[in-house]
């Protein structure tokens, strides 16, 4: 069975799972459905001959699931019934997105068929990567040698995002601080 049929099957499962994740009421079910989508992405990376990416995607999925479940489970939030204007807006959005899809079909026809790479710049890396860098894995030779400055910048972005998350979590909310001051004063 060629790779393309496997990919079509996995993608259809992923689309169904993502729609289910968006439409389900229970938070835990929708987080698990997102997990299905991410593991589907990991599997399709394996079919597309990208083993490094499959491993990283798998780890990402598990970490993301842990973060989401830890943060959102047990928060009781009350779901309100969508009002009429919300339903009208959702319908309008679906119509617009369908129109975008129909118009985009002709754009995708301009691309080369599946199985022929779009970019041809990487042929240099394939031919000379081992000679220039001495790395057996050409992906890591690109990350750490040819495009090392790119990686440095991306690591800066990652560091800033993590720093931002920790800073946000450390800020005490105003009402809480006042409450603690009041309780200290009464003591």
């Amino acid at each position: 069975m060629p790779v393309e049929y496997w990919l079509i099957f996995i993608l259809i499962v992923m689309i169904i799972a993502s729609i289910a994740a968006l439409e389900m009421d229970d938070i835990l079910s929708s987080i698990v459905a997102i997990g299905i989508v991410g593991l589907g992405v990991s599997l399709s990376f394996l079919f597309l001959q990208a083993p490094d990416l499959a491993i990283v995607q798998f780890l990402f999925e598990i970490f993301a699931l842990i973060i989401l479940v830890k943060a959102f489970l047990g928060k009781d939030y009350h779901k309100q019934a969508p009002s009429r204007i919300n339903k009208i807006l959702a319908g309008l959005t679906i119509i617009t997105l369908t129109a975008i899809f129909i118009f985009s079909v002709s754009v995708f026809e301009l691309l080369p068929p599946f199985g022929e790479p779009l970019m041809t710049t990487a042929q240099y890396y394939l031919d000379n990567g081992a000679k220039d860098t001495g790395a057996a894995n050409l992906v890591s030779s690109i990350i750490l040698d040819y495009r090392a400055y790119d990686t440095l910048g991306e690591i800066t972005v990652l560091f800033t995002a993590i720093l931002g998350a920790f800073t946000i979590l450390r800020i005490k909310s105003k009402s809480k601080k006042e409450n603690s001051e009041l309780s200290n004063a009464t003591k």
Partner: peptide, 18 residues
Amino acid sequence: VDPLPQALVLTSIVIELG
């Protein structure tokens, strides 16, 4: 297969986690 998009997506996945 083309290794360049793989290298770009590898870092992009990690940043997505952040």
